[in-house]
């Protein structure tokens, strides 16, 4: 087990280097440049621009820029935004708490509603209520989140006036209800379907028959024997899903003006702020890797047949 974890942690190093390099190259390849963007519409002396670029190290070849970036990163320096002059670390530390709040909110919703719907449908597979719920979840899966987001926004905010269309900068819990619901909808549908299939399948298994034959009460048959088995694939999905939610939701955060990670990354991408994009994306990659490692470890806890060596 210990060796397995160590190996997985070591594997993160090449993934980390690879992903930073990849994002770095992509930023480099994009047209437009942050220094010229500073000037906006004005014409600027090319010599001035060149001087500024030299100051920021942007005139160096790509590999050298990447090297400088890594050296700074290992000293805990994420770099500085060119336009605002603010350290990238500060920007990340502002955006992440908001995204974490939104992600946890959405995640709770996914877990509670998704699993409940899944169990409710799976226990009576192939009945009317199962079919109905399947169609409903299929609808949620097939509607893109920007459509759902905009529809929800115009209905609840503009028509009914129950909520503000935009989330304020502090992003209190109450204002996150609608964005969290929209963000959760897709995963919720997947979780519901996954749970439903798993429950329906395990319901027919031999050990369930044994549990009934043992004279156990229904509550125990379903709560212990069925659930322990049925939730294994669901937990696996939920783990990676939490990683994805923490990575920020560009579309949802954009629609509701939530100043989280997705929103920030999108902004930085538009103004070609390379160090911001690379910093945030790298952090997301690391979060994702850690989440999937935790899922794999949890999997071994849930299913004793899995052993890591």
């Amino acid at each position: 087990m210990g060796r397995y974890v160590a190996r997985r942690l070591l594997q993160m190093i090449p993934v980390f280097l690879g992903s930073t390099l990849l994002v770095f190259c992509m930023m480099y390849a994009l047209p437009g440049d942050p220094v010229r963007a500073l000037a906006g519409e004005q014409t600027v002396d090319p010599a001035q621009i060149a001087a500024l670029k030299k100051d920021l190290g942007l005139d160096l070849p790509l590999w050298h820029q990447y090297w400088n970036y890594l050296v700074n990163l290992f000293q805990g320096d994420f770099g500085t935004q060119i336009a605002s002059g603010r350290p990238v670390a500060e920007i990340i530390s502002e955006a992440f708490p908001i995204t974490i709040r939104l992600a946890l909110f959405a995640f709770t919703f996914v877990v509670v509603a998704g699993i409940s719907i899944g169990i409710f449908a799976g226990l009576k597979a192939d009945t009317l209520r199962d079919r109905g719920l399947l169609i409903l979840t299929l609808l949620l899966i097939s509607v893109p989140s920007f459509v759902l987001g905009l529809v929800a926004q115009s209905f609840f905010a503009h028509q009914l006036g129950w909520v503000d269309p935009n989330v304020s900068d502090a992003a209190p819990w109450g204002e996150l209800i609608l964005p969290a619901t929209v963000l959760a909808s897709l995963s919720l549908a997947y979780v519901a379907r996954l749970t439903r299939t798993s429950v329906a399948e395990n319901l027919r298994s031999d050990y369930m028959r044994t549990a009934v034959a043992k004279g156990l009460p229904k509550r125990r048959i379903i709560g212990v024997h069925l659930m322990r088995n049925s939730l294994i694939p669901v937990v696996t999905f939920l783990g990676t899903d939490l990683g994805a939610l923490l990575g920020g939701a560009v579309v949802t955060e954009g629609i509701f003006n939530v100043k989280g990670v997705g929103y920030t990354v999108f902004g930085a991408l538009k103004s070609r702020e390379g160090s911001t994009v690379v910093g945030i994306v790298t952090l997301i990659v690391v979060i994702y890797l850690v989440a999937s490692l935790l899922v794999d470890l949890l999997y071994a806890v849930l299913d004793p047949r899995i052993r890591y060596a």
Partner: peptide, 25 residues
């Protein structure tokens, strides 16, 4: 009936591997 099952009448199944719950000791 539940109170009879297991307590008064018990059953042994054919395939013990699939008839025992794989994730419980």
């Amino acid at each position: 009936r539940r109170k009879i099952r297991g307590r008064k009448i018990a059953m042994i199944f054919q395939d013990a591997l699939s008839s025992l719950n794989p994730v419980l000791s």
